[in-house]
Computed example of a mutant assay.
Amino acid sequence: MGIRSSIWLLVKGSKDMPERSKSGGKLMSRGYRVEQLEGCQLNANEKPANLPPEIIEEIKGKLPGISFNRYPDDGAKDLCEAYGTYAEVAPEQIIAGNGSDEILGLLIATYINKGQKLYTLDPDFSMYDYYVQQNEGEVIPYSLGVQKVFDVEEFIAKGKESQVDLIIFSNPNNPTGQVIEDQEILKIIEAFSDIPVIIDEAYTEFYGRTMAPYLSKYHNLGITRTLSKAFGLAAIRCGFLLAHPEIIAHVRPLKVPYNVNSLTQLVATTVLNHCHLILKDVADLCEARDVLYKNYSKLAPDCLKLYPSQANYFYGVCQLSSQVPETFAASGIAVRQMGEGVIRLTVGTASENDKVLEVLKKLKGMEKSNEKK
């Protein structure tokens, strides 16, 4: 039996997930159905390899030490200390959560009430919209197409004009893989000194840069992180808020008790104590990403435009909106459909990336065949 994988497809009429309209940033509802495939899971930006066997054995050895009849440590003290050591941030400036999704929900619940405005990029992580909708707020999107250079002055001007209450955006951007430079982010933090500016750094390990050194300097700066990507711990759902103490003081009271279970705390803390081992393949994944893009550039099928990325995925615009994802699916590769004519493709193992190249060759061959007709 091969690996079970999923392609997420748009379904009209569901209210499970929000999607921005193309006019004015209003929220529309978006739902998903799952089509099961045999093959490569390149649709969720997961790390392609499981934990090293020696780490798994260490975790197994610690399981008898868990008091399953007791609630977990509410403050996740050991976990926050371990992550603080890794991130070089004081533990008291960290809140652990059930994935960074929960942390984002806490932040938006803290700062967005009915009628208040979240300022973000378009496109960006859809969960921002979801939580704003739950709190009856409004999303103000700043359009950031893959062919548009980010204009920090324009971004600031629009935010000021819109009188926004909270800023959140991912860096590297999810789904485009583009980045905003540190100095531009600092301009935003300083220009909006009266509201929180939250940088979603879910993919920071693939980029190699972070705003964490500025946390103590700027009272309005916060950072969200996850162990689901570079650390390969998507199964346990563990994320963090790193922030100035002023933000921590506002957000912590809204955290539900015992939000990070004992198993997650044990596994995450164990893994964080072996950062050097867990993250040593990140450079290899980045190299594989760059090689895959270089090979794509040589083929350059007209029907699929992939863009350079600083994360572990590529953003693709399809000229033949149905033919491209269908060709991937027929080859047993699950890609994420971000909407009509747009896909996101995760960098996988060497063999999975080779299969992607075979699909690209097939698409190129289909183009040549159509030209002859």
Rank of each mutant, 00 (worst) to 15 (best):
K158Y: 04
D122V: 00
P196R: 07
Y131L: 04
E102D: 10
A96Q: 12
L121N: 10
T120K: 04
Y207P: 01
D124R: 07
R209C: 13
E88P: 00
E92H: 13
I156F: 07
G177E: 11
D124E: 06
G105H: 02
V197S: 11
I112S: 05
I185A: 03
N174K: 04
V164S: 05
S126W: 00
G177R: 10
T85W: 02
I168A: 08
Y203F: 15
L104D: 07
L121P: 08
K160A: 08
E201I: 03
N173T: 02
G177I: 01
S126N: 06
Q93E: 05
E88Y: 03
E205H: 13
F192R: 06
I188G: 07
Y131N: 02
A109K: 15
I199F: 08
V149W: 00
D101Q: 08
E190D: 14
L186E: 10
P175V: 01
Q178H: 05
I140F: 03
V89S: 12
I156K: 08
Y83T: 07
F150A: 09
A87T: 08
E92M: 04
A82V: 06
A109R: 13
A191S: 14
G99L: 09
V164I: 15
N113T: 13
I188Q: 07
N174D: 09
Y214L: 12
M127N: 11
G105I: 01
E201A: 11
K158C: 05
E138W: 00
E154W: 00
V152A: 15
V132T: 11
I168C: 11
P175I: 00
L166E: 02
Y119K: 05
V139N: 09
Y131R: 08
D101V: 13
E181T: 07
I188N: 03
Y119L: 06
S143W: 02
L144Q: 12
N171F: 02
I156D: 12
Q183H: 08
Y119E: 09
E190P: 03
A157M: 10
S100D: 15
G177F: 04
D129T: 00
Y214E: 15
A96F: 06
I198F: 09
S162V: 02
N113H: 14
G137S: 07
T210F: 07
V146T: 14
T110G: 12
N113D: 14
I95S: 14
I189D: 09
K114N: 07
L106N: 11
P91W: 04
I185Q: 04
Y142E: 02
F192V: 05
G115L: 12
